[in-house]
C-alpha cells in the first residue's frame, strides 16, 4: 500500500521551479517506500538533489557514474541477496543515461535478470548539460545540438523505443507513465517493485527550462502529450501490452504549440508537412496501442 503522506524526497533540492523530474522523484520514493535503495545516474536529478552535504534523499541513495547505474544496482542486488536483506533496488536515471550512454549496462542487467526496478524519467534531452538531443528527443524538437535552422526542422529522428527493447530482454513488467497521472504512475512503480526480476518504467517528465514553457504548465503539458497520442501510457506484462490509457485525441499541434522547442513549426510560417508528419506518428501510436475512444455519432 502506498502511503500518500510519506515524503522521502526532501525540500531544499535545487531543481527548477515546476520541475517534472523532481515531481517524479517524489512520487517514486512515495511509491517505493522506506525499504528501498535508490541508484541514480549522473544527470539533472543527481545534481539538483545531492550537492555535498545537502542530500534530499531520505532513503539510502548512491550515484557512481553517468552510464553505470544498472551495473551498480546489479552489484547492490547481489550483495543484498548474499546478506539475506530485503530492501528493493530502484534505479532513477534520465533519458540520456538510459537511451544512450547507459544502454550496455541496462542490457546486461536485464539479461542477467537481477531483481531491480529501473525508472527512466524522460525529459527528452540532456538537460543538465544544456538541452542537447538524446535518443529520446522527439522528432523535430529543437535542441542545442539539433537546432532548427534555415535547413533544419530540429531533431531528425523519432524517439528510440526503449520499452520494446527492454520487453525483448524478457522483462516481466514494462510500463510507461506520466507525472500528469500521479496515482497511475505510483501504482506502476509499486507493481514494478513487487514484480520479481528486472522491470522498467518510463515516466514522461516535462522540463520547463529545456522545452521552453512556464513552470506552472508542467503537468498540463504532460497531460497534453497523452491527449494527443504523442505519449502513450501502457503496461506490458511478459512482453505483451495488457493495458493502454484511452483518450479522446486532440490534434498534435495543441501540444506542439505550447513549447518553444517546436516553435519553428509555427513561426515564422506554419510548417504543415512537418506537423502532418508528427500527426502521423500520433496516429500510428493510437493504432498500435488502440487508445482512441470512439465518440458515438450523433
Amino acid at each position: 500500500m502506498i502511503d500518500k503522506n510519506l515524503e522521502l524526497f526532501d525540500c531544499g533540492h535545487r531543481a527548477c521551479g515546476g520541475c517534472g523530474a523532481a515531481l517524479a522523484a517524489r512520487l517514486v520514493t512515495k511509491a517505493a517506500g522506506k525499504d528501498t535503495i535508490v541508484v541514480s545516474a549522473t544527470g539533472c536529478m543527481e545534481v539538483f538533489s545531492t550537492p555535498y552535504p545537502e542530500t534530499a534523499w531520505k532513503v539510502p541513495w548512491i550515484h557512481s557514474l553517468f552510464e553505470n547505474a544498472s551495473a551498480v544496482a546489479s552489484g547492490i542486488e547481489a550483495s543484498l541477496k548474499k546478506q539475506g536483506r530485503t530492501e528493493k533496488v530502484v534505479i532513477m536515471a534520465g533519458d540520456g543515461a538510459t537511451f544512450d550512454i547507459g544502454m550496455i549496462c541496462i542490457s546486461g542487467a536485464f539479461e542477467r535478470g537481477h531483481d531491480l526496478t529501473y525508472i527512466c524519467y524522460d525529459n527528452e534531452a540532456y538537460m543538465n548539460t544544456g538541452i542537447q538531443r538524446s535518443g529520446a528527443t522527439p522528432y523535430d524538437a529543437s535542441t542545442t545540438t539539433s537546432p532548427a535552422g534555415k535547413c533544419s526542422f530540429g531533431n531528425k529522428r523519432p524517439k528510440k523505443d526503449m520499452p520494446q527493447i527492454l520487453a525483448a530482454h524478457g522483462a516481466p513488467y514494462v510500463a510507461t507513465a506520466s507525472i500528469a497521472y500521479p496515482a497511475d504512475f505510483m501504482q506502476k512503480v509499486e507493481k514494478a517493485i513487487n514484480t520479481k526480476g528486472p522491470c522498467y518504467v518510463q515516466v514522461h517528465a516535462p522540463c520547463c527550462t529545456g522545452w521552453g514553457f512556464e513552470g506552472n504548465q508542467t503537468v498540463a503539458i504532460a497531460k497534453l502529450a497523452i491527449e494527443t497520442g504523442l505519449w502513450v501510457n501502457f503496461e506490458m506484462v511478459d512482453g505483451k501490452v495488457v493495458k493502454a490509457k484511452k483518450v479522446v485525441r486532440k490534434p498534435v499541434e495543441e501540444y506542439l504549440k505550447t513549447q518553444k522547442r517546436f516553435r519553428h513549426l509555427f513561426k515564422p510560417k506554419r510548417q504543415d508537412a512537418e506537423i502532418a508528419a508528427i500527426q502521423a506518428m500520433a496516429d500510428k501510436n493510437a493504432e498500435k496501442y488502440a487508445i482512441d475512444i470512439k465518440l458515438k455519432k450523433e
Binding site: C11, G12, G17, W57
Partner: peptide, 21 residues
C-alpha cells in the same frame, strides 16, 4: 569532511528555496 563524500538526510533543508519565489 565525510569520507567518500557521503551524507545523512536532513541537510538539504539548509537550502531555503523559498527565496527563489
Amino acid at each position: 569532511l565525510a569520507v567518500g563524500c557521503r551524507a545523512r538526510p536532513g541537510k538539504s533543508r539548509d537550502n531555503k528555496t523559498g527565496s527563489w519565489r
